[in-house]
């Protein structure tokens, strides 16, 4: 029996899997069991993925009466005085957030992975991870407190920067950074744990070989660990980018809590929501959604093709 594979096959990172090991792989092709297993999922994909997406396309190119509208919906929303500021807000937020995420998550994962005392490493991961329990509205509420100098645990810090009131903290120029901090605080830990797991999966022999060759920790990180994390970093980038363009709950709650110092059309999604539920213009809302979709798909494509997300195929 040759069932027990060499350990590399189980532990190797992405690059290890390029070799053509699947000639005798899919022997299940003889029976149609695959159809049974995916049937329900395919149904859900149609109902809540494909059909709504196509519906958005239809809506974006038609008018309220269902007649073909060409690109008038797009020219309307792009010409909206609120559109470009929203694009700018989301873009700045994304740049800050993605850079922070990649730099700090990868850095911290490498550092924590280098910790040799087991319980310290476990405790660190847990602490970094814990804020992930507070997502969505809960974390925004918590950060409302943290950013309000009257009650904040870091009011000293806020005041040292000259922020003496809640309104001073949430000036428009600060918002992208604030939203990035909230998102990082909530989401980074999960990614650190995932990166840590990926680091654990790097074959022992590879690290050992690097060490024998005289590589120090930094060289090993740059030349061995980072390339092997590439796929996960790309994945984190894609998911975070997709999530980031959706910016909604943070500005929405901040707008509510600041008596509209933060406008309720700060982000693109809020603008789409305004179109749909305040102006009853579903076609305009669909046009914004579609624009968001195209941008996210284009950018993801770069990540996917360069990060080897799908290289199994």
């Amino acid at each position: 029996m040759t069932i027990a594979p060499p350990s590399d096959q189980l532990t190797a990172g992405a690059s290890e899997r390029r070799r053509p090991a699947r000639q005798n792989g899919r022997t299940a092709g003889r029976t149609p069991i695959g159809y049974v297993f995916v049937a329900l999922y395919a149904l859900l994909t149609l109902a809540f993925g494909v059909v709504p997406a196509l519906y958005a396309v239809v809506l974006a190119f038609t008018n309220a009466n269902g007649g073909f509208a060409g690109i008038t919906n797009f020219t309307k929303v792009v010409g909206d005085f609120r559109f470009w500021p929203a694009v700018l807000h989301v873009t700045i937020y994304l740049v800050i957030w993605l850079i922070a995420l990649v730099v700090f998550v990868v850095g911290l994962a490498l550092l924590v992975h280098a910790v040799r005392v087991r319980w310290v490493s476990t405790a660190l991961r847990f602490v970094y991870y814990l804020p992930g329990a507070l997502a969505g509205a809960s974390s925004v509420l918590l950060w409302l407190f943290v950013l309000d100098p009257t009650a904040s645990p870091v009011s000293g810090l806020l005041k040292a920067f000259g922020f003496n009131s809640f309104v001073a903290v949430i000036q428009p120029g600060h918002l992208p950074a604030i939203f990035a901090i909230i998102a990082f605080w909530t989401g980074a830990g999960g990614w650190i744990v995932i990166m840590y797991g990926a680091l654990n999966n790097i074959s022992t022999e590879v690290i050992e070989a690097a060490r024998v060759d005289g590589a120090n920790a930094v060289q090993t990180a740059i030349h061995i660990q980072l390339p092997m994390l590439r796929k996960w970093i790309a994945y984190m980038g894609v998911m975070s980018l997709a999530a980031g363009t959706q910016l909604f709950v943070e500005p929405q709650l901040l707008s509510q809590a600041s008596n509209a110092v933060v406008p309720n059309d700060y982000s693109l999604n809020q603008l789409a929501y305004q179109y749909a539920f305040q102006q009853n213009d579903f076609n305009g809302a669909a046009a914004i959604s579609l624009l968001l979709l195209v941008v996210a798909l284009l950018l993801s494509w770069v990540f996917v093709t360069r990060g080897g997300l799908f290289e199994k195929e």
Binding site: A242, T245, N269, L293, A296
Partner: peptide, 9 residues
């Protein structure tokens, strides 16, 4: 679909 912002849908 995984990469589509879910709010877009």
């Amino acid at each position: 679909v995984m990469l589509i912002p879910s709010t877009a849908l």
